[in-house]
């Protein structure tokens, strides 16, 4: 299994993400100007400040050549994980619903938070238990998840809210304490917390590894056959690797 981590100018957490990916499989960096995803089984868009983010977080990165390829990959069912700035980029690219607004505090916040796993039957959370609490850090200025009420209701109804901040721990004013959402097909997932910074007991927590283990388990299951994969996903996800 191979994961690809996109590197934009201004990415900051791409090497951390690469390390986390390598705990569960092969991984390599994908350059922002490349349109070739090099046959990876899943794409990670890491945290940072792509192109400086001077316009609006993620607003420039969505136009990068690599994002054209990522969009096609996602539309064909490939797994795409967006972390922090990656989440912002995926929202800007229209691959995920909603938007990330400046934190209510209007300040950067770096803090360990507890997250509740809302759905454990998706490619990104299948290694978790439903209701399980994960300790993972956040660090961002623009992390307040927003979508119109109608969309939020739809997300809830479709089971697209995969992670929520535990009660009293919402660090940014996200609506309905949403920390991470998937698209309807559940092959694209974005979250503000940084699972790649929670894969080493020395640096505070290993709970973030569950996200990467989930991706690996899903890709492996696809290898064994679509039925095995569907067992780990609410909707039938057909990844590229299954062809």
């Amino acid at each position: 299994m191979k994961l690809g981590v996109v590197r934009f100018p201004g990415s900051c957490d791409e090497l951390d993400a690469l390390r986390a990916c390598r705990l569960v499989g092969d991984a390599e960096l994908l350059w922002h100007r490349d349109r070739d995803l090099r046959g990876v089984d899943a794409v990670v868009i890491p945290g940072g400040f792509s192109y400086g983010d001077y316009l609006r977080a993620g607003a420039i990165a969505r136009f990068a050549p690599v994002m054209g390829a990522v969009g096609e990959f996602a539309r064909s069912g490939g797994l795409v994980l967006g972390i922090c700035n990656g989440f912002q980029v995926l929202c800007e690219a229209g691959l995920l619903p909603g938007a990330l607004l400046p934190n209510l505090s209007l300040r950067f916040v770096c803090r360990q938070v507890d997250l509740v796993v809302e759905r454990a039957d998706t490619p990104f959370t299948r290694a978790c238990d439903p209701g399980e609490v994960l300790s993972i850090p956040v660090k961002h200025t623009t992390g307040r998840y927003y979508a119109p009420e109608r969309i939020l209701d739809e997300l809830e109804a479709n089971g697209q809210v995969l992670l929520r901040y535990a009660e009293g721990q919402n660090p940014n004013g996200s609506l309905r304490d949403i920390a991470g959402v998937a698209n309807e097909r559940k092959n694209v997932f974005g979250l503000m917390p940084h699972p790649e910074h929670a894969v080493d007991p020395l640096t505070g927590s290993t709970d973030g590894a569950r996200i990467f283990e989930s991706i690996a388990a899903h890709v492996e299951a696809l290898r064994r056959g679509p039925l095995a994969a569907a067992g780990g996903s609410a909707s039938a996800v057909v990844g590229r690797g299954a062809a």
């Binding site: 900051c12 300040r107 950067f108 916040v109 910074h197 080493d200 640096t203």
Partner: peptide, 16 residues
């Protein structure tokens, strides 16, 4: 003040 700084990037920070 410290919460306004990213103290984690690089995966090296054992004591924050």
């Amino acid at each position: 003040a410290f919460e306004q700084y990213d103290s984690l990037v690089g995966s090296r920070t054992v004591r924050r």
